[in-house]
């Protein structure tokens, strides 16, 4: 039995290595000298590696990274402000027509982003939101809000009714109950929704490329895209930007995995 388990681990490691090879390759290319880039066969490890790609990133891409951060945080705030109360309402207050709202939220997610982009473009060009960070934040939030409402309502429906009734008996109104009881116990849902809202806004390319093409504040995805278009030779710089653009995803996952896991167990205990 023990030997077999060892064998399974070995297979697991090999499979994971195959799966992650492109990620490794991205890092490898980001460290490769420009002169070695067209070498055949390519260097499997960055022998004679260089950080030149990264210095280019630091020199040229920092403003893009800053914009992405700003847009990510903005999207998280918009998503939380809209989704948390709605999730609470759907889960615990149950308004007439709440079912229809849930259904609409599901259907909303079926609309292709390209269709949304055209709709936004047609509207933004009229009201002057084109090429602005705000316009992009609002557009990006449409990726996260329906998901956020569904997560919040799934999570909040597991809050015991006794807890809310106790608050009501103590004289707390609906708003007070929401702010001082529901929100604090929903911390894990807040973290989960924030995490995904941030990642989606950070990764968004389509909205950025259609609604913010001429903007002065452009996100990192447009930074990479401009690289790919302009200097086909500097693949180490392109891949270095890609590595840097992947960092928040990695950091957030590592930091927040604990909270997501905590959410899993707390949910399991409550039921």
């Amino acid at each position: 039995m023990r030997r077999r388990a060892w064998w399974l681990t070995a297979v697991g490691v090999v499979l994971t290595a195959i799966m992650l090879f492109p990620v490794y390759w991205m890092v490898n290319v980001s460290l490769t000298q420009t002169s070695d880039m067209r070498k055949s066969p390519p260097n499997l490890i960055p022998v004679d590696g260089t950080l030149a790609g990264y210095t280019v990133v630091l020199r040229q891409q920092l403003p893009y990274l800053g914009t992405s951060l700003l847009i990510g945080i903005g999207t998280v705030l918009v998503t939380l402000v809209l989704a948390a109360p709605a999730g609470y309402s759907l889960a615990k207050l149950r308004p007439r027509g709440g079912g229809a709202v849930s259904l609409l939220l599901l259907v909303a997610q079926m609309i292709p982003a390209i269709v949304m982009a055209m709709g936004f473009y047609a509207t933004y060009i009229k009201i002057g939101l084109l090429d602005s960070a705000w316009g992009l934040i609002l557009a990006d939030s449409t990726i996260a809000v329906p998901f956020g409402v569904l997560i919040f309502s799934a999570f909040m429906s597991r809050i015991p009714d006794e807890l809310l009734q106790a608050a009501r008996i103590d004289g707390a109104g609906t708003l007070r109950t929401f702010a001082s009881i529901v929100l604090p116990v929903s911390r894990n849902a807040i973290i989960t929704v924030s995490l995904f809202a941030f990642l989606w806004a950070w990764s968004d390319f389509l909205f950025a490329n259609t609604l913010d093409k001429g903007g002065s504040l452009q996100p990192i995805t447009l930074g990479i895209y401009a690289y790919i278009g302009n200097n086909n030779q500097q693949w180490n710089a392109i891949m270095a930007t890609a590595v840097v653009a992947s960092v928040p995803a990695a950091v957030l996952l590592v930091l927040a995995q604990r909270y997501v896991a905590a959410g899993v167990t707390s949910g399991a205990v409550k039921d």
Binding site: V23, S203, F205, T221, I224, A245, A250
Partner: peptide, 8 residues
Amino acid sequence: PWLLPLLV
């Protein structure tokens, strides 16, 4: 792979 930006 699922968490990386699609562009990356």
